[in-house]
Design a binder for these strands. Structure first.
Lengths: 189, 189
DNA sequence: TGACAAGTGGAGACTGTCTCCATATTTTTG
DNA sequence: CAAAAATATGGAGACAGTCTCCACTTGTCA
């Protein structure tokens, strides 16, 4: 899981430049730029880009890794300081809220979830684990049912992410969260 | 909405050949074939393919239009013969069941929902209308809440479609439906 | 049957992806 | 500190799909 590669100085510099430029472009909505151009704009060669990030998705993952990690950590904090079912609710609502203000992350998550390509989906797997933990904890207290797995909730989250650019995104996404939460809280199978 | 084009005989023949071959290939899982090859395999020229179906998605939509229409009609029948909330439940369960046995349709729906490109998404819009009708009817009887719109339910359906090839598809999709139904049935906002 | 409209097909232009390797930079070693 | 070894670079060009264009064929209608 942890990297054991002491990257050469210039290599790290280029890698960082790539990520920085990509972050800037993504935030600007320029997501589907010609891939080679990311390299040009970051001031490195095409080969260098491909060596560091074999695919557009790999680059996106690198760009949003921190953000995703932060999100997972926040969930852990909540789990430590709030009653289980409130932690779950806060997480889901926070998830939608965050997506609402960070389209890039939503797009990335939608893509990563769609292509469940093992190596790259590391980030989404972490998210899945977080959801599973939240559900398990809430189920143990009896606050929610235990016959619906994290996979189901992840599916709904995927649906939410995929709609990041719909005009009624916020309303609909909030609706989904309401359905999921109330559905979960309805005790019996 | 209705076509007003009297298509020439050979044109119709080619169009049908294209759809037939595509249906066959899709059912076989050969979805991402080189687009030009659809033409070659159907025995027509590249230009002809592009004239009839400007994009891969347009072809997919044509292939699954009947299937989608049938699905919508089934919903209408249910609505005419069952209590509103049962119609809704049957439809959602039937939806998952159908997808489970028709990956191609699932893939197509996922794609069409993602690219909300007006012209092509005609099929999904019909689906959205059906869901809206089912919800409205059930809400009027008081069987379900009325503060969550069809858009939210469509989001969850999108999530379901997008996961058509996950190993745990059926379990998770059933879970989503359970959450949605129970979430909807929980009366108060 | 002739004239006109409608449709065809496939060569090749075009566009983006990705590889390859001679060259350059960094790190290690003596 | 210099040479050797290891590591990384960049961008020309091969390649693979997509899609357009138009000289030619087929169908339709009077």
């Amino acid at each position: 899981m942890t990297d054991a590669k002491p990257l050469r100085a210039d290599a790290r510099r280029n890698r960082d430049a790539l990520i920085a430029k990509a972050r800037e472009l993504f935030a600007d909505g320029r997501f589907d730029l010609r891939f080679d151009d990311f390299a040009k704009l970051a001031g490195v060669g095409t080969g260098t880009l491909y060596r560091h990030f074999p695919t557009r998705e790999a680059l996106a993952e690198a760009v949003y890794r921190e953000e995703l990690t932060a999100m997972c950590e926040r969930a852990h904090e909540m789990q430590a300081t709030l009653p289980a079912d409130q932690a779950l609710e806060s997480f889901l609502r926070g998830f939608v809220d965050h997506l609402h203000h960070h389209e890039g992350l939503a797009r990335t998550l939608a893509t990563l979830m769609a292509t469940q390509s093992g190596a790259l989906a590391e980030g989404t797997q972490a998210l899945g684990q977080v959801v599973a933990d939240l559900l398990a904890a809430a189920a143990k207290t009896g606050a929610i049912r235990d016959d619906v797995g994290a996979g189901a909730v992840m599916m709904t989250l995927h649906g939410i992410c995929a709609a990041y650019d719909h005009p009624s995104f916020r309303t609909d996404a909030d609706g989904v969260v309401a359905l999921v939460l109330d559905g979960l809280r309805r005790g019996e199978p």
